[in-house]
Design a protein around this nucleic acid. Structure first.
Lengths: 184, 184
DNA sequence: GTCTATAAAGGGATAGAC
DNA sequence: GTCTATCCCTTTATAGAC
């Protein structure tokens, strides 16, 4: 269901479609997920969340200069979108926007995933020398900018919003005071 | 339908629900909008788009300092969200994310609306002394950051993402070279 | 142009044989 | 645990009287 949720969103994805994609009968789906569509979506959000947070150190570690790393992060996302034909990059963002006011349970799971992203990414930035209260603000700004640029780029079929967001966030991060990295 | 689309999104909003809210029978809806749900949604996006672009000069004109204006813009949005119980602020962003890969016609309309936003807001910034290529990038960064922060704030039920985005965008705009405003 | 009734299709979910 | 058939509801959209 992860792939379908990412491409089509929550409302447009049917359980029957999920069963077909998984080459499993519907009965089996409901046997393993008695909560039905909601439970499956929640599981997808948690799994995706855990996978995506690993990208942060993976993509930023190679850059000694955090500002350069941030710019490269957004450029990589822009390249990915172009190469995949403007596919959705993050199911968490789109599903959150879709169900935030209509599916309280799923919204709560999304909040949990986003919260853990912020905690983990903030800790990473602190390790790279960003002071503690600033780190959290930087993560919120970057994550919001990334999710918003994903939507604009998918809607416009253009990487311009994503690349503009990258330059803006790099310029912003450059204004945030940085101490020495905790580990070399 | 505008209100329902804003709160529930495209998929969760039914034509019957729209008819009930408009106190009109379904037949009348289809008489005026033969294209059905899609045509209504497209009309809503265009109307909303035209209305929202007017907010830019309205909210920024009072501030001689553009950086202060940008900060106030995001703070005002954050206050609005808190006061409305985390209601969705912009149907264009959520609907775009929802249907970008499943409803080509509506995606095209969304792209048109977003494109006109960028054109108009860029022209406004040029009038405030921001150089032409920079202005477009600033608008993309701000719009993306705003839309993304809307999603995060709605999901987390917290204005923290929106306020962090505002501080980040203010810091970014402060780094963009500005000439003298075209008109005092 | 307005409204009611209904068609046609698809959704989520379940029952129960195996 | 697996799978099939089916229930029940809602959806979009239309037909046709008024």
């Amino acid at each position: 269901m992860a792939e379908l949720l990412r491409v089509q969103g929550y409302g447009a994805t049917g359980v029957k479609q999920v069963a077909a994609a998984a080459q499993a009968p519907i009965g089996s789906i409901y046997h393993h997920f008695p909560g039905g569509k909601r439970e499956i979506a929640a599981a997808v959000l948690r799994t995706t969340g855990a996978a995506y947070i690993q990208l942060v150190p993976l993509l930023l570690d190679p850059y000694d200069d955090l500002v350069a790393g941030v710019g490269a992060f957004f450029e990589a996302a822009a390249d990915d979108m172009e190469n995949t034909g403007w596919a959705n990059m993050c199911p968490v963002g789109t599903v959150t926007g879709e169900v935030a006011d209509s599916e309280p349970g799923i919204r709560a799971v999304a909040a949990e995933v986003i919260g853990s992203w912020v905690d983990d990414a903030s800790a990473y930035l602190v390790g790279r020398g960003v002071a503690d209260p600033d780190a959290r603000a930087v993560v919120f700004a970057m994550l919001g900018s990334l999710e918003g640029a994903f939507i604009l780029s998918r809607g416009l079929r253009s990487s311009e919003p994503l690349r503009a967001a990258g330059r803006a966030m790099a310029a912003y991060v450059a204004t945030v005071p940085q101490g020495a990295p905790a580990r070399s």
